[in-house]
């Protein structure tokens, strides 16, 4: 952990707890998700996109949803590992909540476009044998978040519906913030370069 990390976690601890409590109410579509999807769904079914283009967009959305489900499961694993201290655990729960919100928004788009959103798998395989310390868990989470940034960066250019690209870009930004925070917690440079590759 870097010197700065504990303070950073303390600052966000109170708000994380509040958000966790607020989230306990259920999985209704958040106001943010509704707003994010408003532009994308407005053009769904208007005939502006070909059938094949809509199907392709749904496949891309569902691939993203599948990855988000994996992230939710990974943070659950981390939260239940007993390895995260009182300062770090709320951050993990907060980030998990973000991934749940991403799923809500993406699944709403899939439904609006006439598709069926990908469900979470019954089981996920994670390298649990390598998770012995808090740092191991944070490294694992940072790797997933970095991968998520790459995945969204690779998906944004290929959505036929450009409103979906905007939504994906918004999610990418959130994933990048997660990655930076986790790197900082590990004592690494949170922003290692001007460009991401």
């Amino acid at each position: 952990m870097s010197k700065h990390a504990p303070e950073l976690f303390k600052e966000t601890l109170a708000s994380s707890r509040r958000q966790f409590i607020q989230r306990a109410g259920g999985l209704t579509l958040s106001a943010t998700a509704v707003t994010m999807m408003a532009g994308a769904t407005a053009s769904a079914g208007t005939g502006k996109q070909s059938s094949n283009a809509v199907k392709q967009d749904i496949r891309i959305l569902n691939t993203a949803i599948a990855a988000e489900h994996e992230a939710v499961a990974a943070y659950q694993l981390g939260a239940e590992s007993g390895l995260l201290n009182d300062a770090v655990l709320p951050i993990a729960i907060k980030f998990q909540g973000h991934h749940k919100e991403h799923i809500e928004a993406l699944a709403a788009a899939v439904k609006q476009f006439g598709g069926v959103a990908a469900e979470a798998k019954a089981d996920y395989r994670f390298p649990v044998e390598k998770l012995k310390t808090q740092s191991n868990v944070l490294e694992f989470a940072a790797g997933l978040e970095r991968g998520a940034v790459s995945a969204y960066a690779g998906a944004i250019p290929i959505f036929d519906n450009r409103d979906l690209s905007k939504v994906a870009a918004s999610i990418l930004a959130d994933e990048a913030m997660h990655w930076a925070i986790l790197r900082n917690a590990l004592g690494l440079d949170p922003v290692p370069g001007a460009f991401f590759s």
């Binding site: 691939t63 599948a66 990855a67 994996e70 395989r125 390298p127 790797g143 997933l144 970095r146 991968g147 998520a148 940034v149 790459s150 995945a151 969204y152 960066a153 690779g154 590759s197």
Partner: peptide, 17 residues
């Protein structure tokens, strides 16, 4: 380093997304 771009969905050892 380039493979990190794949790691949002893939690993060598097991199926993911």
């Amino acid at each position: 380093h380039i493979y990190q771009q794949c790691m949002g969905c893939h690993s060598f050892e097991y199926h993911r997304t």
